[in-house]
Amino acid sequence: MISRWIQNLRTTDPARNTHPMDQRPEIELRLTSDPMYLCGARELVACIARRIGFDDMDCAKIALAVDEALSNIIRHGYERAFDKPIWLGISPLKPSANTIGGIVIAIEDEAKQVDPCHMKGRDLDDIKPGGLGVHIIHEVMNDVSYEKRKGCGMRLVMTKYAPRPSDSPRLSDQAPSCKVTLNDRSPSRR
């Protein structure tokens, strides 16, 4: 399953050409479609996003997008069956000229298939409960694509780029005087 999944994760955007998923996602998680595990998936994604360099707000939003995607699978794909498989794959993107990197998240299931053209957010002017998940995913992530898996189920691949702060110096820009040696931090120097 994972190999078929990864095959489809390869980027089709040569301009960005930074997806590292030519082989496998660096993190793979299989979870059961029980809402009680949403918190674990959120924490994992937010934690990785933070290490990549996203700020706290972006980490929370990326975790929200993942939560919404998983909730949609449980609610609509599996019709609230809480014992079905979902696969979550995460890989970081390398820094580029305009970004400090990014994150690619792929979510795959064995739920009923839907025409990807129908995976659209609803009209927000019509205020009613529900139907916000797809809108939130598109609002938070930079690239979002749904496709049918071969055989059964759906695959969602979403990417978020972390913009490079224009005013923060790169490590290579720092003067040598900024270096901290081990001695500087040793207790004997306090």
């Binding site: 929370a60 975790a63 939560d67 919404e68 909730s71 409960p129 916000l132 939130i136």
Partner: peptide
């Protein structure tokens, strides 16, 4: 600390 769209839908209702 966190709310998703199901919480939001509950509040809309």
């Amino acid at each position: 600390e966190y709310m998703d769209s199901s919480g939001l839908a509950t509040l809309v209702e």
